[in-house]
Structure formats: C-alpha cells, structure tokens
Computed example of a mutant assay.
Amino acid sequence: MSQTILVTGGAGFIGTHTCIKLVESGFAVLVLDNFSNSSPESLKRAEYITGKSIPFIEGDINDARLLDEIFAQHSIDVVIHFAGLKAVGESVQQPLRYYQNNVSGTLVLCDAMQRVGVKNLVFSSSATVYGDPASLPVRESSPTSATNPYGRSKLMIEELLADLHRADPEWNIALLRYFNPVGAHPSGRIGEDPGGIPNNLMPFIAQVAVGRREHLTVFGGDYPTPDGTGVRDYIHVMDLAAGHVQALRWLEHRRGIKAFNLGTGRGYSVLDMLKAFERACGKSLPYQLAERRPGDVASCYADPQLAADELNWKAELGIQAMCEDAWRWQSENPNGY
C-alpha cells in the first residue's frame, strides 16, 4: 500500500516539482499551502503533467486547529515540510516575520504530528546553515552558523528537531540542506515564479532574457573568487525533487535524525551562470554590478558524498540543462502562472 505524504508548502517552486516526483514514484500526496508565495495553478499543472489528481488544502502551518483536522481526516505517514519564507534580504529587514513563520510554524506542525503519533519528517533545510564556510567544500560535519535571519531560522529548526529526537527517539527525521535550486520541469509547464523582484539569480536572469527587466543586477563584484562574483552550488530542481524521494526511502528503514547536503559539488559564479543562460536563450544579456548584499557569502558549494552513500542519490543534471529548462519555462510563461 502506498504511503500518504503531507507536503507543506507543496505549491511552491521546490514543492511542486517534488510532488510530481512523489506521484510518479507511487506515493499519495496531500498538499497544504497558504499560497503566500505560490499559486494553485502550479498544482493544476502538476496534475496535468502526472495525469493524477493532487489534493490540496489552503491553510497555514501556524493554524493548529486546521492541522488537527487534517491529521484526523487523513491517514498521514510522513510529512515533507517545505512551508517557509525564504528570501535572505527580506529576512534581514523582517526578522520577526521569519522567526514567526519558519520557527514557530514548525513548532506548531511538530506539536500536531506528535499528538497523532506521526513521527516521520523530511525537513527542507538550507546550505545557509553553514554561514560563511571556513573551508570548502562543506560537509555535513562542517561548523554551522548563519549570517542572516533566514539561515538562522533554518538552523534553529534543525536544533529543535534534534532536541525532539533526543527526547523521543521514535522521531525519524531527514534534514535536507539544499544548495541553490534552479531550473524547471522539462515540460516547461511549471517553474520558479517569484512575486515581485526575484531574490534568486536564475529567475532574475530569466526575466531579463524574456524582457521583463532591463538588466541583471549582480550584487558584489569584488569577492575573493575567480571573477569577483559570488560562487554557489546550483542544483537542478528535478535532481532536488529526486533527493526527497530517496529521503523517504531512507526513512522507511532507518531510525534517527541525519543531515544531508543536496548539491552537485561544483561551484559556479554569477557570471558563469549568466554565460550559460546566454547560450540557452541565444542572446547576450546586460548586467550591472552593485554593492554586496548584507548576509551574502563569497563562495559556498557542497560535498555531496554522504547523500550518495546513504540516500543512493546524486545530481545528474548540469548547468546547461538547468539554464535550458529555466529558459523554456520562462519563455513559454513570460509572466509566470
């Protein structure tokens, strides 16, 4: 019998792509999303791609009564917890909002899970928990420390989940530390659709390519990197989605709490990504250098070996596929959903 997975934030960029992989892998999916940074249209398109219905409930993880209703009405086996605010710059300006939504929301969710004895959780963490890495590539054993409230909220959640497991070893938790998710579903029907000015590089470049923005703003050209721009480990969202399926399989036969890096192990600079995107869309794209952003680090990329060894997972798609798929999505959906 297939397991039922509650996916919080399942209408978001990573959430929708993961829902597709889950359905294709035979899991039953129930989505909870408040659509604060996503659209019900993304789930409709996920249904079109999979040919299966993806039931969803509109609501908030901070709503304890709603969570109790969901767990009472549905037989949930595992929760994949994506729901959270995720813009580094915004978190610096609105720390209370980030702690309220991300940390407090996770507490409310875990409390509801505990009440019904659902103790399997895959948590959407982030490479920002490594702060400004002392050495590269970063391993799961590298020191953690965040440079902004967004990263600190992820780190606090990891720590509260570790405490939860120490208090009750029946909790079974995979902490997935994502590096920089980009790309889109190869169908071009779903992709990243940020509200307002994009905080992440790839949708910003894509919006320049499609004519929605005049030029790319590159934050910081004086980092100690090969070309002066920030270096990140970009990972295709479909590879990332596959990592969640592998994490569920790991939870089926393991007990405990463990962190895994989901990255490619390669760092690319902002200008590397810009050039790759220019190849994908067939035109040159203007950019301007600006001051560094507070909370950004010079360079960060993963050692993904642990995920290969324990989850039997590794990233398959390279920088060109990331850019081509992102461009297909953006060019076919110039204004998003």
Rank of each mutant, 00 (worst) to 15 (best):
I20R: 00
K21D: 12
L22C: 09
L22E: 05
L22W: 02
L22D: 04
V23F: 01
V23R: 03
S25E: 06
G26H: 08
F27D: 00
V31D: 00
V31C: 04
D33F: 01
N34D: 13
S36W: 01
N37Q: 13
S38G: 09
S38M: 06
E41C: 09
S42L: 11
S42R: 08
R45V: 02
E47R: 06
Y48Q: 14
Y48M: 12
I49C: 03
I49K: 01
T50V: 12
T50I: 11
T50E: 08
G51I: 10
G51C: 11
S53N: 14
I54F: 02
I54R: 00
P55V: 07
P55T: 08
I57C: 07
I57N: 06
D60W: 02
D60V: 07
I61Y: 00
N62D: 12
A64S: 15
R65D: 15
R65V: 15
A72W: 11
A72V: 10
Q73C: 13
Q73Y: 11
Q73G: 11
H74M: 10
I76A: 06
I76Y: 06
V78T: 15
I80N: 01
F82V: 03
F82G: 00
A83I: 01
G84Y: 00
K86T: 13
A87V: 13
A87L: 11
E90T: 14
S91V: 06
S91I: 04
S91T: 07
S91Y: 02
S91R: 02
P95V: 04
L96A: 14
L96F: 13
R97W: 04
R97V: 13
N101P: 02
N102W: 00
N102M: 07
V103N: 03
V103E: 04
S104Q: 14
S104A: 13
S104H: 14
T106E: 05
V108G: 06
L109F: 07
C110I: 11
D111M: 12
D111E: 15
A112V: 05
A112P: 05
Q114F: 12
V116L: 09
G117W: 11
G117P: 09
V118G: 02
V118W: 02
K119Y: 04
K119R: 14
N120Q: 15
L121I: 08
F123K: 01
S124E: 06
S125A: 08
S125M: 03
S126A: 11
A127N: 10
V129R: 01
D132G: 07
S135Y: 10
P137S: 10
V138D: 01
S141H: 11
S142E: 03
P143E: 11
P143V: 09
S145L: 12
T147L: 10
T147N: 09
Y150G: 01
G151C: 04
R152K: 12
K154T: 05
L155K: 00
